[in-house]
Design a protein around this nucleic acid. Structure first.
Length: 511
DNA sequence: CAGACAGCGCATCAGC
DNA sequence: GCTGATGCGC
DNA sequence: GTCTG
């Protein structure tokens, strides 16, 4: 009997099961390599027969609903039927509401189409249980890789992120997340207090080290097979002796001690908590902690009153936006835009476009086929849209964006706003970008990310004596523009840069 | 071994 | 009020 | 911290 479940720890919510049902399930999953455990908090994956989040909330600790993978028990039956560890995502509770179903395998029984408005206020978070560090369950990783993996020669991995395929979650995800903790630490000046690195000598080193960790993680992200030895890791680009040592520790103990220590560091956790506010980066957050002795978001709000508004809707900002909700925002905005001036087209970019199940914000690039660079219409239309949102009471706050500045001169306009949909109170961060039609697809590439992918596009462009920016592609020599056909869509941008096409969902070159 | 590491727009603020 | 430096975000 | 010239 094949070991389908790969020693996954599985917990079953007993509601709606008879004792004999449980015994039956237990036997089945044990035969296929799973482990039935009796504490949900230790589980990799949780099975249930409950069809809606409301019912679920009565049967399971709400913090577990958010932190664990909870799937319909049909997932187990289908895994056994297909003799493979299937992607759990189509089986999540509640099911995906998006118009394009993400499931590859047929479900005999679809969950009740509960059309509860997607207002997530029942799982409001508080700063005290804010966990700044990513943790991906092993189940999620295993389930993302049911297919056969082809091995590659590590040294042949392309050196630029824009030339490799980087999935949203990769086979070495847990290792990467362990390394990423160290990256974050370095990015925030290790344990230097603000005073000691005001003499900028050490600080810059740390930033470079952080960048090195980013690149190592990025390379690992595109590496197709599970790393089994240090010697294997060492030949992957951007993994040198130091990081190889950390990987060695991970391979023998399953974790990196430094990372585990950092995860519990009160100072680092506070500093990262402060950085969840827009406009607060590593410098400011350390100032708040070390000089103003801030320990909570309220302390920060007192130290800098301009941040008070953000603290009031902080829990909304921390609540991830489920995938199916993102197009609803875009549709709302484009409908409003149609009323102001018909004929607009748009692309939802950011992490949504890269295929993430949850997003922190929504990035939308708008254009009008009739809107060219020289027209001043676009900024007017954008202002009108913002005004319209204001009169609809949908607009909460403008975080950034002005009608002046050289970007505006180039025809590119943007507003970063906080808004809510009509009849909802939940606040969502939306980045609205207006691009002239000539650079629409360049702009879409620029706003799709990920960060590492963008960096390496620029690097690649420089190698060709070109300059890539979200407001166009030009020659480095004389600054003259390279025209990109808008009719051919996004692939034309890659073509203009001499790049192989990479699907948006394969551009997840960050952790 | 030294130098590079993406690169630009926007906000804020010190110093004039 | 202007200007340049710095921090921040993407 | 790692790679390149």
């Amino acid at each position: 009997m094949p070991n389908i479940l790969g020693y996954l720890k599985i917990y079953i919510i007993p509601t709606k099961y008879s004792p004999s049902d449980i015994r039956q399930l237990s036997a089945e999953l044990t035969i296929h390599g799973g482990q039935l455990i009796d504490h949900p908090e230790r589980a990799d994956i949780i099975l249930t027969r409950l069809m809606g989040r409301k019912r679920l909330a009565l049967a399971l600790d709400p913090t577990l609903i958010d932190s664990k993978i909870v799937v319909l028990d049909r997932w187990l039956a289908d895994c056994i039927a297909h003799e493979a560890l299937l992607d759990h995502r189509p089986y999540l509770v509640p099911p995906d509401h998006s118009s394009q179903p993400t499931h590859k395998w047929p479900r005999k029984q679809t969950a009740s189409p509960s059309t509860r408005p997607p207002n997530q206020h029942n799982n409001t978070r508080s700063p005290s249980d804010h966990n700044p560090f990513k943790t991906t369950s092993p189940a999620l990783i295993l389930a993302s890789f049911p297919a056969t993996e082809k091995s590659i020669e590590p040294s042949t991995l392309p050196r630029l992120a824009c030339c490799r395929k980087s999935p949203s979650i990769c086979i070495n995800q847990l290792l990467i997340e362990e390394l990423d903790v160290i990256r974050v630490w370095k990015e925030n000046g290790e344990d230097d207090t603000l005073e000691s690195d005001l003499n900028q000598a050490g600080k810059k080193d740390d930033e470079k080290h952080a960048l090195a960790y980013s690149r190592a993680c990025s390379a690992l992200k595109a590496y197709p097979t599970k790393i089994c030895s240090v010697s294997e890791a060492q030949v992957i680009p951007f993994i040198g002796p130091k990081i190889a040592l950390q990987i060695g520790e991970y391979l023998s103990t399953g974790q990196i001690k430094l990372s585990q220590t950092l995860r519990t560091s009160v100072r680092l956790r506070s500093i990262l908590l402060f950085q969840t506010l827009h406009g607060v980066g590593s410098r400011l957050s350390r100032e708040f902690y070390d000089i103003h002795d801030c320990r909570t978001l309220e302390d920060v709000a007192n130290a800098r009153p301009s941040l008070k508004v953000q603290v009031t809707y902080w829990s909304d900002l921390q609540t991830p936006i489920p995938r199916y909700e993102v197009p609803l925002i875009a549709k709302f905005l484009s409908d409003e835009l149609e009323m102001i001036s018909p004929g607009c087209i748009h692309t939802i970019c950011g992490s949504y476009r890269r295929g993430r199940e949850y997003s922190n914000d929504v990035d939308i690039v708008f254009t009008y086929p009739a809107m060219n660079r020289s027209s001043k219409v676009s900024s007017q239309v954008l202002d009108q849209l913002v005004d319209r949102l204001r009169t609809l009471s949908a607009l909460t706050d403008i975080l950034s964006g002005s009608s002046i500045g050289s970007n505006a001169l180039r025809g590119l306009h943007q507003r970063f706003i906080m808004m809510s949909l009509p009849r909802q109170t939940r606040q969502i961060r939306v980045d609205i970008i207006f691009a002239p039609y000539e650079i629409y697809w360049v702009c879409v590439v620029g706003w799709t990310g990920s960060t590492m992918f963008e960096r390496d596009i620029r690097k690649h462009a420089n190698g060709l004596n070109l300059k890539f920016a979200s407001h166009g592609i030009s020659r480095l020599s004389d600054g003259s523009e390279i025209a990109v056909s808008q009719e051919k869509g996004e692939p034309a941008v890659f073509e203009a840069l001499g790049l192989e096409w990479i699907e948006p969902t394969e551009r997840n070159a960050d952790v």
